[in-house]
């Protein structure tokens, strides 16, 4: 099928202002948007820049706005978006070149919620695992699926307004550790997320949940964090 692919272009070494470039391509409807970008880079314009790595929806490198909505280019098929496709960089982060954005503010917020396992207690007597029941594991199973693609955070109006806001991805990560029965820093993380740049800025818009390529119930996770800060319970 014939598709018209419109791509956001900006090269800081050449362009004073961003612009769009349009490419007419003959592609299969089962091809992914990432395949189209590769086609343009390989056969039309080698200067086109975008991030990609695994190309299978696991690494989270190629999150971008496709027809006005955050998606992973490697998980989005042509037939799902039609024959007129517009590809733009994520919102709320500086554009470095073309579809590549500066992810530093995103990861700075991620680091604030202590995204690692904290347990200072001695190991169990046998010196092996810290055991956990299937129910305890299931409590935070949903939020372990995050691939840090930033599709959620950059779809959030609160993050567009200020990158001080931790953002959905950081809050999902906080949820993953706060509700882990083996972790011992829940109260510390709850204190971090309850500050003004945290949960209070979530207005339950749902853009994050709808943008998540892993279908994580992000707004629900944030809702559980809100209740945890109110009640102090992390059961």
């Amino acid at each position: 099928m014939q598709v018209t692919l419109k791509i956001f272009r900006y090269n800081p070494e050449v362009d004073k202002k961003w612009h769009y470039e349009t490419y007419d391509l003959d592609v299969d409807e089962k091809e992914r948007i990432l395949d189209l970008l590769e086609l343009v880079k390989g056969h039309h314009d080698g200067t086109l820049s975008f991030r990609r790595s695994c190309a299978h929806g696991v690494c989270g490198s190629d999150a971008m706005r496709i027809n006005g909505r955050n998606m992973l280019a490697c998980k989005t098929l042509v037939r799902d978006v039609g024959d007129k496709i517009t590809v733009e960089p994520l919102l709320g982060l500086k554009v470095i070149k073309d579809l590549i954005v500066d992810m530093e503010p995103f990861f700075d917020n991620y680091k604030k919620v202590l995204p690692y396992f904290i347990n200072e207690s001695p190991l169990p007597a046998d010196g092996k695992e810290r055991l956990q029941s299937p129910e305890q594991r299931a409590r935070f199973d949903e939020t372990t699926k995050c691939i840090l693609c930033a599709a959620c955070t950059t779809s959030c109006p609160s993050f567009w307004a200020s990158d001080d806001y931790l953002g959905p991805a950081a809050l999902v990560t906080a949820h993953r550790f706060i509700f882990d029965s083996r972790d011992e820093a829940a109260s510390e993380r709850l204190h971090i997320v309850s500050e003004t740049s945290g949960l209070a800025r979530c207005h339950t818009v749902f853009n994050c949940t709808m943008a998540c390529p892993r279908e994580i119930q992000i707004t629900k996770a944030i809702g559980e964090l809100k209740m945890a800060t109110l009640t102090g319970k992390v059961d």
Binding site: K94, A161, V205, F206, N207
Partner: peptide, 25 residues
Amino acid sequence: MGLKRNVSLATALRYKGQGPFLTYI
């Protein structure tokens, strides 16, 4: 380095967040 991160109102309103985003607006 790069373009600013600012998201204009017009750009924000064009984001296709569907039903929930409409209720937010």
